[in-house]
Design a protein around this nucleic acid. Structure first.
Lengths: 178, 178
DNA sequence: TAAAGCATGTAAGAGGTTACATGATTGG
DNA sequence: CCAATCATGTAACCTCTTACATGCTTTA
């Protein structure tokens, strides 16, 4: 998570650690702790994915290297199924760096995961109701309903992205728009 | 997370580890790994929060102890601000075990966190637009909009729960319902 | 000149994961 | 009887957190 977010932000320009953290939390990703940020930067540096382009003693400004670009492409394209929302958000935020086919693959993979989750959620509701003999408590019920609505909204959102991705990809479909 | 989920499920009746895991994933919380489940059970046992009520060599059936009940009450009532969705879900699933005042406190605390997040999200959108001079890319924009809608939906959901909690709590307001 | 904020870092530990090992029980 | 699945467990590791330590720079 930190690795992909760091590389993604550094693709937009060199930054030092403190500023990187500000961007991360400002964007609404999460407020990463320094205790995790600095060791991560050192690790990325040691791996050759980023380099120090200005160490004036005070600030250490990092820039992404070609090796880091490769690593970033690898990370952004490889979806893990039923990925955490936080990680997927970071992926979407940098989705513009992926080629159109890769984007479509990521979005469709996410869609499948969401549909599977919705199915599991509905199944869970049924089993829960059967187990408790329809005495499902108010809060659990409210939670399950909320989750169902949230997943449905997300699927609709993804569908919108997929649709506009498809029209951007296959221009041949745009026959007689009027 | 595992601690509160385990204690909460054991409040409904004794279970062995394997079955506990089934319930956890069946409910849609998450598929906890055995490598985390069994050490956690041993830790809870050592702390005296749960006890083995049937170790027939094969299955080890655990039950919650009075100490575990205390621990559970402590965990369910103590909200951490801007809590992860997963943890809050577990909290809601067991909210019925909290007294009405505690429930209201938890819900209102969550509401505040969501409102704060929405404000941060809007601020982030403005700074991001200012920084990139209105050339915010499609995906980032879609993501920010999606997040805003999701948080708003969650606030509305919480408001519903708070409202019904309030009417259940203060019966004096129910003057002339017809 | 003192406080607030900028900036980097280390150590310990929380809370999970994957991979591996082992054995009992049940169903075809 | 063999495979699947039930059932428990350990070891190594990953990612991130909190708490602490340090020193510089800006501003009131």
């Amino acid at each position: 998570l930190l690795e992909i977010a760091t590389l993604g932000l550094l693709k937009e320009g060199p930054l030092h650690g403190y500023e990187l953290r500000r961007r991360l939390s400002e964007f609404g990703f999460w407020r990463v702790s320094f205790g995790s940020l600095y060791p991560a930067l050192r690790k990325l540096n040691k791996a050759g994915h980023i380099e120090v382009i200005s160490g004036d003693g005070r600030r250490k400004v990092y820039a992404i290297t070609p090796s880091g670009e490769d690593r970033f492409q690898e990370l952004i394209a490889s979806m893990t199924e039923d990925e955490e929302e936080r990680i997927f958000s970071v992926r979407v935020a940098f989705l513009r760096y992926l080629e159109p086919e890769g984007r479509l693959a990521v979005l469709q993979s996410r869609r499948e995961a969401l549909v599977a989750r919705a199915a599991r959620s509905r199944a869970a509701m049924k089993t829960a109701m059967r187990r408790t003999k329809d005495r499902l408590d108010r809060y659990t019920l409210a939670l399950l309903e909320r989750n169902e609505r949230a997943v449905e909204a997300d699927i609709a959102w993804i569908d919108g992205l997929i649709a506009s991705e498809r029209t951007a990809l296959g221009q041949s479909t745009t026959i007689e728009k009027t």
